[in-house]
């Protein structure tokens, strides 16, 4: 009889490796906010929660789109100069954009849209504008002139705002919050390269996030995270070449031209998706030195990984132990910023 129990126990043990249904991965994909998004979650409510998340993302896109004539931002951009009533979450995000403009000394500007459009980055009809045209457009750039009062926003006549630099991060924050409320303890969102995690993997280990190699295929390394957002901005994401010069889509609001800060990409890691989203763009515009200064001024309240044009990788102390450089990028000169 002992032998029998032994066999039964062995059979049950082996069978149990197929009994992981509650940890089965559920995923959804959606085209929204001008990108391709993948959401995955584990647990009992995962499927329903992800369906609701997709609906939520589409609702936010309908409010924040700069091109959809039904959106709140579209209306505010054509007010002209009149206060426009918007939803609380739109007013709040615009206020956040204005606040970040101030905080970053103008490196992030939600009113840079007309300049970005002139370069063709919103349509794909790329061109290098004349200096005169850029100067003319810059007269109507300056997020501090946009005002939010209660649930009304006012975009001065001639100006346009676009939440593209914060919308994906903000959407990820809202979706993560919604997933947690639905009882999901383990989920990972990839909103077009903006990654944000709820909890850790079902087995308790951290999520492994690759950091894209700005030079091409593959990654520069892997970062392990839980309950964090990881947002990367890089010139490689969208660019064009004219007369041998390459022009990328990250505009320096002070010049109205692609930022030339000596960086290839900036990854920001932190609790808040929209903050990381805003900062990945801002730090790229600032360059390595000013980025480090900003990080100190913010009491090191976030972490970053900066890849410089001269093959340097700058990583803050808070995440350096969770980062492993890819075997193929041993040429990168790694500096830990403390």
């Amino acid at each position: 009889m002992k032998k029998l129990y032994g066999i039964v126990a062995a059979a049950m043990m082996l069978s149990s490796c197929s009994g992981a249904e509650q940890n089965e991965k559920v995923s959804r994909s959606v085209f929204a906010m001008d990108t391709y998004m993948t959401l995955m979650a584990y647990g009992d409510n995962a499927g329903e929660a992800l369906d609701a998340a997709v609906v939520r993302i589409q609702e936010l896109e309908a409010k924040w789109s700069v091109t959809d004539s039904g959106s709140e931002i579209y209306k505010a951009d054509r007010s002209p100069g009149q206060p426009i009533a918007v939803s609380a979450e739109t007013a709040e995000l615009v206020a956040f954009g204005i606040d970040m403009n101030n905080k970053t000394g103008g490196a992030l500007d939600i009113s840079i849209y007309p300049v970005l459009k002139e370069w063709g980055f919103t349509t794909g009809s790329y061109k290098v504008p004349t200096d005169e045209r850029i100067a003319e457009l810059l007269e109507n750039v300056g997020a501090s002139r946009v005002t939010v009062s209660g649930s009304e926003i006012t975009v001065p006549e001639g100006m346009m705002i676009d939440l593209g630099s914060v919308a994906k991060g903000a959407a990820a924050d809202k979706v993560c919050e919604q997933l947690r409320e639905a009882g999901v303890a383990s989920a990972l969102l990839d909103l077009g390269g903006n990654v944000q995690a709820v909890g850790s993997k079902p087995d308790g280990s951290k999520w492994k996030i690759g950091i894209r190699d700005p030079h091409g295929e593959g990654t520069v390394g892997t970062l392990s995270i839980e309950n964090k957002a990881v947002v990367t901005s890089g010139g490689y994401e969208r660019f064009f070449t004219e007369n041998g010069n390459t022009y990328h889509h990250i505009m320096d609001p002070s010049t109205g031209r692609p930022a030339e800060s000596g960086l290839l990409s900036v990854t920001v890691v932190g609790e808040s998706g929209r903050y990381c989203d805003a900062l990945s763009t801002s730090l790229f515009v600032m360059g390595a030195e000013k980025a480090e200064e900003f990080w100190r001024n913010e009491n090191k309240g976030f972490d970053y990984i900066i890849i410089t044009e001269d093959a340097g990788l700058l990583i803050t102390k808070g995440i350096s132990d969770d980062f492993i450089t890819s075997s193929g990028r041993g040429d990168l000169k790694v500096t830990v910023v403390e």
């Binding site: 990654v195 996030i209 894209r212 700005p214």
Partner: peptide
Amino acid sequence: DTGLDATAG
């Protein structure tokens, strides 16, 4: 099959 859960970038 990369061992990665997602890629930022």
